[in-house]
């Protein structure tokens, strides 16, 4: 429940930079993974709209989709417009997605699980309930 996004900026560049970054001769900024010296476990395989993708273990669906260059996975009820992650902390419900047939999951909170069948959510995502 806690939503403590940092407010007071107390940056201490020397202290907080990983050692590699300290070398100003390094021409390439590091990727996020090397920044925290991450050695992830084996990737998680899932599909998104039929496309085979992988996530790093523990990554949210939103993070895995971002890593694949995908920024939208929902269309709005009214205008049918594309949407994806916005607040990143489960507050805005913009990132709703259908996972294994269950609609309205928040992609920024739900971790990718092996074999997940993930699909773009159309509108309310509840067409299956429509008696028509």
């Amino acid at each position: 429940m806690t939503r403590n996004i940092p407010y007071t900026v107390r940056l201490q560049p020397g202290e907080n930079m990983p050692r590699r970054l300290g070398r100003s001769t390094d021409p390439r900024p590091p990727a996020p993974l090397s920044l925290v010296d991450a050695r992830p476990g084996p990737p998680v395989e899932f599909t998104f709209d039929g496309r085979a993708l992988t996530a790093l273990p523990g990554q949210s669906l939103a993070a895995a989709l971002w890593a694949a260059g995908i920024t939208s996975w929902r269309t709005t009820r009214g205008g049918g417009r594309p949407r994806g992650a916005f607040c990143g902390i489960g507050q805005c419900f913009d990132c709703l997605i259908t996972v294994n047939g269950r609609p309205n999951r928040r992609a920024c909170l739900v971790p990718a699980a092996p074999g997940d069948v993930v699909t773009t959510q159309e509108g309310h995502g509840r067409a299956a309930l429509d008696p028509q």
Partner: peptide, 12 residues
């Protein structure tokens, strides 16, 4: 009186 409001749904 209390009222509950659900998520948006098709006209069920």
């Amino acid at each position: 009186g209390f009222v509950l409001v659900t998520e948006p749904l098709p006209r069920l």
